[in-house]
Amino acid sequence: MKGVLLVNLGSPDSPTPKDVKPYLDEFLMDGRVIDAPKWLRTILVRGIILQTRPKKSAAAYQKIWWDSGSPLIVISERFLKKVRSQTELPVALGMRYGSGSIEEGLEQLRAQGVDEVLLVPLYPHYAMSSYETVVVDALEVQAQKFPDMQITTLPAFYRNPGYVKVLSDSIKDHLKDFEYDHILFSYHGIPERHIRKSDPTRFHCKIDGKCCSTNSVAHHTCYRHQCYDTTALITEALGLPEDKVSSSFQSRLAGDPWLKPYTDYEFKRLAEEGKTRLAVITPAFVSDCLETLEEIAMEGKEDFLEAGGTAYMHIPCLNDRDDWVALMGQWIDQWEKTGSLPV
């Protein structure tokens, strides 16, 4: 029997240092998030980061926490409920980190008689620290706990025509009453070395301004290329002037070089160049979370206005939009009836 497992990032159980600390420990100790040797990762995470970061992160979570719980969890559960209405197949939800794990999701499906699972990482783009870690963890759990279960993984869907249309329509809907002079596509940041590590050719990804526009098999696992491709596809779909669109990367740790340009630097640059009415979209996420609601919607607005901007709009993620739900239902239906997956 077939079934579906939707997987999102996860969240602390509460916006308190006590609950944020174990969540951050699980997240940051993932070798695909901080890809240092385990001994060094342990020193960095447990010896340094977790001594101060939980308190700071808890304060950030408190700013965006809803009465009903973590926004990412609440949104994911709403999405789950709506997707279930689109199919007769059993559908469960798992989180890569924190409560409601991938293992728990697979156990829910097995209890309903499922032995063939469509794994849906809720990330449009391929990256070691998001899409890949979900797939690897799911396959490890399957091998250890569910050996008779077969898993098929939905590929990264950043350029799927249906997804491009849904995202374009969402942007258009939110911009209809906002007169902007620039749109910034702000993507989750990752270290540059992750791009090189994900390159199957071991030589294509030079991050030199040319490799992302030069055709290569490396693009199948190149987060940077896929992000820029998303911006180009949406720009074309909406007929946006290219001089009113740019891309940047948010969230980074000190030390190693991360993907550039940095979003916070772009806020200042755009304002200083006279782009004073800014709309910001965060296409690396399908569900609003700490990184979109606090870092972009709150801190980003403050940074941009302090730099001289006059108007700022954060465009929400797709969350549980009906057209996004319907598209997921179509993908599930295609897999159920034909065994094929969307491209």
Rank of each mutant, 00 (worst) to 15 (best):
K2Q: 07
V7W: 01
P15G: 02
T16Q: 03
K18Q: 13
K18C: 06
D25F: 08
V33T: 02
V33E: 06
I34E: 13
A36D: 15
A36C: 04
P37Y: 05
P37V: 02
K38E: 14
R41P: 03
I43M: 13
R46F: 05
I49W: 14
Q51C: 07
T52Q: 11
P54S: 05
S57N: 14
S57Y: 07
S57H: 07
A58R: 00
Y61A: 00
I64N: 04
W66D: 15
G69R: 01
S70C: 12
F79Y: 10
K81Q: 13
K81I: 07
S85C: 03
T87W: 00
E88P: 08
E88C: 15
P90Q: 00
M95L: 06
Y97P: 15
E103T: 04
E107C: 08
Q108T: 07
Q108F: 02
Q112L: 12
D115F: 09
E116I: 15
V120S: 09
V120N: 09
Y123C: 03
H125V: 14
Y126Q: 05
Y131A: 07
T133V: 13
V134N: 03
V135F: 08
V136P: 04
D137N: 14
D137E: 15
D137V: 09
L139C: 10
F146N: 13
Q150T: 14
A156P: 01
Y158K: 02
R159H: 10
P161F: 13
P161I: 10
V164R: 00
V164H: 00
V166C: 04
L167E: 01
D169K: 13
S170V: 10
D173P: 13
K176P: 00
K176G: 09
D177P: 00
Y180F: 13
H182S: 00
F185E: 01
Y187L: 12
G189W: 00
K197Q: 14
S198N: 12
S198W: 05
T201V: 01
R202N: 11
I207P: 07
D208C: 10
C211E: 04
C211I: 05
A218S: 11
Y228C: 15
T231A: 11
L233Q: 01
E236Q: 13
A237E: 07
G239A: 14
F249H: 11
L253P: 03
L253A: 10
A254Q: 15
G255K: 04
D256G: 09
P257E: 10
Y262T: 05
T263E: 11
Y265H: 12
E266C: 10
E266K: 09
K268L: 14
R269W: 13
E272S: 09
R277I: 01
I281G: 01
A284K: 05
T292D: 14
E294H: 11
E294W: 03
E302C: 03
F304D: 01
Y312S: 02
H314M: 05
L318P: 00
N319V: 06
D320Y: 04
D320T: 03
R321H: 09
D323Y: 10
W324A: 05
A326G: 11
L327S: 04
W331I: 08
W335C: 12
K337I: 08
S340P: 15
V343W: 03
V343M: 08
